[in-house]
Structures are given as structure tokens and as C-alpha cells.
Design a protein around this nucleic acid. Structure first.
Length: 209
DNA sequence: TAGGCGATGCTCT
DNA sequence: GAGCATCGCCTAG
């Protein structure tokens, strides 16, 4: 294997998103995030990927962790917009949301899949696989590949260097919506958004309405 | 490639 | 103690 040398600075210049680039509305933010770049900088190197699949968990949504009110775990969902909400799912996998409503409202956008852009050898080491398609396909895999864990909970995704959102690196394809994956409450709401015909999208494609 | 299934351990009631 | 916004492995087509 001819692994590339990792650097601690991005190989590509990413244009950070500003608050004025993004809507403050959960479903609108979910759509807007498709095609944007998520960048992670660690001492081991930089990893980055295009966001290709998300799910919106809107205020008053029974499927949302915030539905029952603020708890120590879900506090990040109640912060100002564009903060990271990182939680452990099924005791095995970290999952990451972006807070999406004004402070105190409790909502978020779950990142479900990325298309790897940079730091692929590092992602392969973290994931223990060389299969490109499986590096960031699924919310738990995405967090493992990007080294996202609870230490990044409540991080401001527009202000910090460790993890931040950046502008798309290329034109975003058609965005489609469908039912959300793996939930038992409000399963019929069309709040999953993904880039059509992108092979890095997770879940069954038959969920499309 | 798609679908089924069991392991997993944290969170909340 | 029950539920769960998942994953990896296995099998079938």
C-alpha cells in the first residue's frame, strides 16, 4: 500500500461557512448542508468530506432526542444554531447533529453520510477498512472516520478549527427527500435529504417516496 | 447489492 | 429494566 503522508493542515483551502450562509430552520438547514464540506483537523492529519445525506429533527418532532425536553445528553440541541451535538448510539457508535434553531428550541440535523474528499488513508486506518464506499456511509461510520466523539460536543461548527463546516467544493447534484431511517416515531415524515445518484448515501434507496 | 439478524452498552423512565 | 437516530456479518439473488 502506498499511503500518502498525512499533514496537519488541509491540502485544499476550504472556505468556512458564515452564519449568513445558512438558514435558521431545521428542514431548510438540512437541505442547505447537502454538498457542503465537513472538515476535521487533528494532530494525525486533516480529513474532509462532502455531506451527501442528512436527516432533520425539527422542534416538536417525537422522533427527536429533544422531544422530551432538555437533558444533560441533549443540551447541545438547545444551544444556538450550528453547534455539534454528539451522542453515543446503541452504546457502540457516535453520531453527530448540527443544532438548527434559535437557542432554547431543541432541534438538529443528523449527518448520515459523507463522500470522502481528503485524508482518505487516515480514514481507512480509523475505520479498519479500505473500502472507500464504507468509510463514511452511515452516521456511526462517519464519526469513526472523522474521529468525532463526545469531546467535540457543543463545539461551534463555524468558529473552531478542530471541526468546521465549509462551502461546497463542487456543484451539488439534485437533492431528494425521503422517510427517515431506523426510527419508530413519526416514521412517515419526509425529513431525510440526500444527493441523488451519489453512491456514498447510506440506507435503502427504496425509501424514496 | 440488498435484506435479515444479533451484539452492543448508554440513556432515560 | 426497556428502548434504541447502528454496525458488521452472513446469505440469497
Amino acid at each position: 500500500m502506498n499511503a500518502k503522508i498525512q499533514t496537519s493542515v488541509p491540502l485544499q483551502i476550504y472556505t468556512r461557512l458564515k452564519p449568513s450562509d445558512l438558514p435558521i430552520s431545521t428542514a431548510e438547514l438540512a437541505k442547505a448542508l447537502i454538498g457542503c464540506t465537513l472538515v476535521r483537523e487533528t494532530p494525525e492529519g486533516v480529513t474532509a468530506g462532502r455531506i451527501v445525506e442528512v436527516e432533520a429533527y425539527v422542534p416538536g418532532d417525537p422522533a427527536s432526542h429533544a422531544f422530551r425536553g432538555k437533558t444533560p445528553r441533549t443540551a447541545a440541541m438547545f444551544l444556538s444554531p450550528y453547534r455539534a451535538y454528539v451522542y453515543l448510539s446503541y452504546g457502540t457508535s457516535w453520531c453527530m447533529n448540527v443544532s438548527s434553531e434559535p437557542e432554547g428550541h431543541g432541534a438538529g440535523v443528523l449527518l448520515r453520510a459523507l463522500e470522502p474528499l481528503e485524508g482518505i488513508p487516515l480514514m481507512q486506518i480509523r475505520r479498519g477498512t479500505h473500502t472507500l464506499r464504507d468509510l463514511c456511509r452511515g452516521p456511526g461510520r462517519l464519526c469513526q472516520a472523522m474521529a468525532i466523539d463526545r469531546s467535540l460536543n457543543e463545539l461551534d461548527l463555524l468558529q473552531q478549527n478542530a471541526l468546521y463546516l465549509a462551502a461546497p467544493v463542487r456543484k451539488t447534484g439534485r437533492v431528494r427527500k425521503s422517510k427517515r431511517i431506523g426510527i419508530s416515531k413519526a416514521p412517515d415524515r419526509l425529513l431525510r435529504f440526500y444527493e441523488a445518484e451519489n453512491s456514498f448515501v447510506s440506507g435503502p434507496r427504496s425509501l424514496s417516496p
